[in-house]
Design a protein around this nucleic acid. Structure first.
Lengths: 128, 128
DNA sequence: CTGGATCCTGGAGGATACTG
DNA sequence: CAGTATCCTCCAGGATCCAG
């Protein structure tokens, strides 16, 4: 660690990014955008569990941060497509890394979690 | 996208991981552990803004998921050290990727955000 | 179809006090 | 020092209705 203070500043400065990039819905939306422009409802269906409100907010934030481009077509019924901006594309590898690690070690986590819990249940049972 | 259903399952299965890995405090704690074993209070001071309660909870969850190892030394006063497990170490590169991207594009986000806001303010002003 | 505006609740998370 | 226990606040986020 180079410098405690400096490191601390890095941590704080990064907070703003982590709050976007680490956001649960953000990562989900990123997953839905991997294969090109997608419409609002497509994203919602792809994620399956996100409410309309949260999807709207998440997309608006991503657009605000310059990571996603919103294109509205003046048609009836309206059509809106979302896709990565250039800046957004530079984030894909890092996101992929998280995704890949997750699918690779998903089971390890589950296993560790169960082991920890059974250990814990044992203690609780012993205490009674 | 190979299969909508399958993709959807992947998203849901990943949720459990994202809730850990994408958690704000988790990422902060990871940053504090990069350089080896650290004591409870060291972590808290390094992060600076985390409450005792949240640090305890975060560390306990990380331990439960097998990402962090807790070592308590029977001394007076007590000393407890936290460090990455082998599983935790495999996650470091992905975390680094997020960190690196964040420090690299931190300013881009700030800029995009300001641009978006001023554009938005303009609209609001025009509406009045 | 793509949202905006409201209302409402659960739970994240801070503050504080206590303990081995 | 490294937590645990409790109380309390606030807001993320769902449900619902409305609109262009």
């Amino acid at each position: 660690m180079p410098d405690k203070i400096e490191e601390n500043e890095r941590l704080k400065a990064m907070n703003i990014i982590l709050n976007r990039v680490g956001d649960k819905w953000t990562v989900m939306v990123f997953g839905a955008l991997f294969d090109g422009p997608v419409r609002f409802n497509e994203i919602q269906r792809a994620i399956g569990t996100i409410s309309q409100r949260m999807l709207t907010l998440t997309l608006r934030n991503l657009e605000r941060d310059g990571l996603v481009i919103r294109t509205a077509y003046a048609e009836i019924p309206p059509r809106v497509e979302y896709q990565f901006s250039e800046l957004g594309k530079t984030l894909i590898p890092a996101m992929r890394a998280i995704w890949d690690w997750s699918s690779l070690h998903h089971n390890d986590i589950i296993t560790a979690r169960m082991a920890y819990d059974s250990r814990n249940d044992g203690l609780k049972a012993a205490a009674e």
